[in-house]
Lab assay of single mutants.
Amino acid sequence: EEKRQVKQVAKEKLLEQSPNSKVQVRRVQKQGNTIRVELELRTNGKKENYTVEVERQGNTWTVKRITRT
């Protein structure tokens, strides 16, 4: 359940930055209360990979860091 929520948060964050792209989740890793989500962003056939680190704060998820990989 929490992985599902985190995927959603990570996707939304990337789509905010580039709204007309397609996002696909590649991998989800958990480390303590930080969850790392690896995503693939496609814009006009151009692929970019991103890693989004999401942290739990109380009962909400906040995006800590977005890295292009």
Rank of each mutant, 00 (worst) to 15 (best):
Q5I: 14
L41I: 05
R68H: 08
S18A: 08
T51W: 14
E53D: 12
K22N: 08
V28H: 02
G45T: 09
E2S: 05
Q31R: 13
V54I: 08
V63F: 03
R56Q: 08
Q24P: 01
Q17P: 01
L39M: 09
V28I: 12
I35D: 01
N44G: 10
K30A: 15
R42T: 15
Q29C: 10
R68S: 08
Q5G: 09
V54D: 00
S18V: 13
E53S: 09
E1L: 06
E40P: 00
W61R: 00
I66L: 05
Y50S: 01
K22E: 15
Q29G: 08
Q17F: 13
R65V: 12
L41G: 03
E1Y: 08
K64V: 15
K22F: 14
W61P: 02
R4V: 05
K46Q: 12
T51G: 04
G32W: 06
K7M: 15
E16Y: 02
E40G: 04
S18Q: 11
W61E: 00
E12A: 09
N49H: 11
E38Q: 09
V37T: 00
K64R: 13
K64F: 09
N44S: 11
R65D: 14
A10K: 00
R42E: 14
K46C: 06
L14T: 02
G45K: 06
N59W: 05
E2F: 06
K46P: 04
V28T: 08
R65W: 06
S21V: 04
R4M: 09
K46N: 12
K30I: 14
R4F: 07
R68A: 09
Q57W: 12
R36H: 14
P19F: 03
Q31V: 14
L14D: 00
K30N: 13
Q24I: 13
E40S: 08
E48V: 05
N33Q: 11
E55H: 09
R68F: 10
E55V: 12
T51C: 07
Q5S: 09
K11Y: 05
R42M: 09
Q57E: 14
V37G: 00
N33S: 11
V37A: 03
N20Y: 06
T62Q: 14
Q17Y: 10
N33E: 12
N59L: 11
K46A: 10
T62F: 10
K7C: 14
S21Y: 02
R27F: 11
K46G: 07
V52I: 05
R42H: 10
W61H: 04
V37L: 05
K30D: 14
L15V: 03
R42K: 10
K7I: 15
T34I: 12
V9C: 04
K11G: 03
E12C: 04
V23E: 00
T60G: 15
V25Y: 04
V37F: 02
K64M: 13
Q17C: 09
Q29M: 14
V63C: 04
T67G: 06
Q24S: 14
E12R: 06
N20A: 07
T67I: 12
V52T: 01
Q31P: 01
R42D: 14
N20T: 07
V25D: 00
Q24F: 14
T34N: 08
G58H: 11
R42V: 12
E12L: 06
T62Y: 13
R42S: 12
T67Q: 10
S21A: 11
Q57Y: 12
T69Y: 12
R56L: 08
N44V: 08
T43I: 04
Q57D: 13
V52W: 00
K30M: 15
T69F: 10
T43K: 08
E38Y: 15
T43L: 10
L15K: 05
E1H: 08
N20W: 02
T62I: 12
N20S: 08
R36Q: 12
V23D: 00
L14A: 05
E16C: 03
R56H: 08
I66T: 04
K3E: 15
T34E: 05
E48F: 04
V52E: 00
N49R: 14
V25L: 03
N20K: 05
I35C: 09
I66A: 03
K30P: 14
V6G: 07
Q29H: 14
G32V: 04
R36G: 04
K11I: 15
N20I: 04
K3N: 15
T69Q: 11
Y50D: 00
K64W: 05
K13F: 12
E38N: 08
R36K: 13
G45R: 07
T62G: 09
N33I: 07
L39Q: 00
L15Q: 07
V25K: 00
P19G: 03
K11S: 12
E40N: 06
V63D: 00
E38K: 12
K3G: 09
Q31W: 15
Q8F: 06
K47E: 06
V6I: 14
W61C: 02
T69M: 14
K47G: 04
K3P: 03
K47N: 10
K47P: 07
Q31I: 12
E38C: 07
L15I: 03
T67D: 08
N59P: 12
V63I: 09
N59I: 10
R68N: 15
V25M: 04
K47L: 10
E48N: 03
R27D: 08
T34Y: 12
E2Q: 14
V23G: 01
L14H: 00
T34R: 07
K22Y: 09
V9E: 02
L15G: 02
T69H: 13
R65P: 01
A10W: 02
K46S: 10
E40I: 12
G32Q: 05
T62L: 12
R27S: 12
V9W: 04
Y50Q: 00
R26Q: 11
G32D: 08
K13E: 02
K13N: 03
N49M: 14
Q29R: 12
E38A: 08
Y50T: 01
V54H: 01
P19L: 02
T67A: 10
V54N: 00
R27A: 11
K47V: 12
R27C: 06
L39V: 07
E48W: 04
R56A: 07
L39I: 10
I66W: 03
T67C: 07
V63K: 00
Q29V: 14
L14F: 05
L15F: 02
G58Y: 06
R4N: 10
I35K: 01
V63L: 03
K46R: 09
T51Q: 10
E40D: 05
S18D: 05
R4W: 12
K3T: 15
T67Y: 15
R26D: 03
G58V: 06
S21E: 01
K11D: 01
A10N: 01
W61T: 02
K7H: 06
S18E: 07
K30F: 15
V9I: 14
K13Y: 13
V63R: 00
R56G: 06
E38D: 13
E12I: 06
K64T: 15
E38F: 15
V9D: 02
T51L: 11
K30W: 15
A10H: 00
V28S: 03
T69C: 06
G58C: 05
T69W: 12
E2D: 12
E55D: 11
R26F: 10
E38V: 11
R26M: 12
W61M: 05
G32C: 04
N49F: 14
G58R: 06
K7V: 15
K11E: 07
E40R: 06
V9R: 02
E55Q: 09
R27W: 12
L41V: 11
R56F: 08
L15R: 05
T34A: 12
T67P: 01
T43G: 07
R42P: 00
V63N: 00
